[in-house]
Structure formats: C-alpha cells, structure tokens
Amino acid sequence: MPAKMKMLAVAIKDPADGPGADDVRRAQAGDVDSFEQIYREHSPRIYALCLRLMAGDAQSATELMQDVFIRAWRRLDTFRGECAFSSWLHRLAVNVMLENARSDGRRTARVLPMEDTGKLPGAAKSSGIELSMDLESAIASLPRGARMAFVLHDVEGYQHQEIAGQLGLSVGTIKAQLHRARRLLRERLER
C-alpha cells in the first residue's frame, strides 16, 4: 500500500524578494547547492500542480516535476528579476506541462478519444495514490482536456485567454471544457 501523501500547508515565499534572493543569484552563478534550496522551497507547490495535471499518477508527476526543475536550471540565466522568481518558475512549470501535454496529446489521440483517457494506465483509478479528499479523486477522474482547464483556471487561477493561447485552443473551447469539468465534478461528488 503506497504511503499516504503528506499534504503541506506551507506559505510559498519568494526567493527573489526574501531571504532566498541570494540563492537565486548563487544558482545563476552555477551553485548547485543554492539551486537545491530553491528546489526545497518550491517543489511542493510545483509537485502538487503536476500531480493534479497527471491525474494523481505519482510517477508521471515526479518525472514532470523533474523536467521542470532541470529546465529551470538550464534557463536560470533568463531570469532577470523583472517578476517574482516564484512567478517565473510557476510560469515555466506550466509551459513545460503544456508542451508535454501537446506532445502527449498527439500520441494518445492516435489511440484513444479524449473521453477515454480515464482508461489510460496513468489515470487515477489505477494510480494507487491515496488522494484523501473526494474532490481530488474527482478531479483526477476528469477527462484530460477538462482536467487541464479546471486545474489551470479554477485551482491555479490562470485566465481563459492564457490557457487558450498556451494550448492553441479558442477561449470558447476552454470555457466549454471548464463547464464540463464543473458539471462532472458536481455529479461525481454527489454520488
């Protein structure tokens, strides 16, 4: 039986403004230990996002999070301090996830229609992860498109326009996916 995930109620501090600003500067200069401090600070939030987007599949979520931090390390020199470091990192994480989603989407589209993604091996039903809240399980059981729209909009607070732009879809399509996600969630939570 997999270990129950430890939910953390942590406040996300901003290394660019707070005590972690030195870590960012040192990491930009190539200091891996400082980058590890940044990882310790931000990985719980990024991992939570990855888990929800990957339907609770811990292995896929871990790989995705690792991709995000490897790319963050490689692109650290592009962070100029024009925005909060946490925003920069979060934006990068979402971009990596959406890029992966696009390429994964091309692959899975050849095999399964979007409505059937719950049957994929990584779907929540087969993940074995104990998402202790009913809502988490319901989100994980959503079809892929609806889940991405819901997590990015309702959980992470992205605008319709931003999600549509990143996914190459219309705002209308995103709104329709959101409507569908909320309807399915309400139905599943009522059961």
């Binding site: 995930m5 939910m7 953390l8 996300i12 719980p44 939570a48 871990t62 999070m65």
Partner: peptide, 11 residues
C-alpha cells in the same frame, strides 16, 4: 485544496 504536496525524497 492543499496547494503543496511533498515530492518523493529521491526526486
């Protein structure tokens, strides 16, 4: 919903 989840230690 919780906004943070601790990732696996070996990651």
């Amino acid at each position: 919903l919780p906004r943070a989840v601790e990732p696996p230690v070996q990651a």
